[in-house]
């Protein structure tokens, strides 16, 4: 299964506005994308399009997360989402 790692760049971590922007973007992808903290078992991965899941994940600035997806367009979807996580969304 295609996967990518990304380092959270937003100052407030994956909370608040960054979480909302990321969940919305994940929901717009043609494939289902999951998110987990680096090192956590793949079975514990959460739905990346769920803002509540993102909030319970509690990823802070500098934390590394793993994104996974399968199917047509998975690679492009993952690339787009990694780019979003590595942008400081609080600054926009």
């Amino acid at each position: 299964m295609p996967e990518r790692t990304a380092t959270i760049a937003s100052r407030s971590g994956l909370h608040a506005r960054p979480a909302a922007l990321f969940a919305e973007a994940a929901g717009e992808q043609p494939v289902e994308v999951t998110i987990a903290m680096q090192g956590a078992p793949a079975d514990d991965a959460l739905d990346a399009a769920s803002i509540l899941s993102l909030m319970t994940l509690g990823a802070a600035k500098g934390d590394v997360v793993v994104l996974r997806a399968e199917g047509d367009g998975a690679d492009a979807a993952l690339d787009a989402l990694v780019k979003l996580l590595e942008t400081d969304l609080d600054a926009e």
Binding site: A16, R17, A19, A20, A23, E24, L46, D47, A49, S50, I51, L52, S53
Partner: peptide, 16 residues
Amino acid sequence: KAVLEATALMAKDTML
């Protein structure tokens, strides 16, 4: 606006 946007997303949240 930011609070309302986040709250709107919660309404159709898959986890919920």
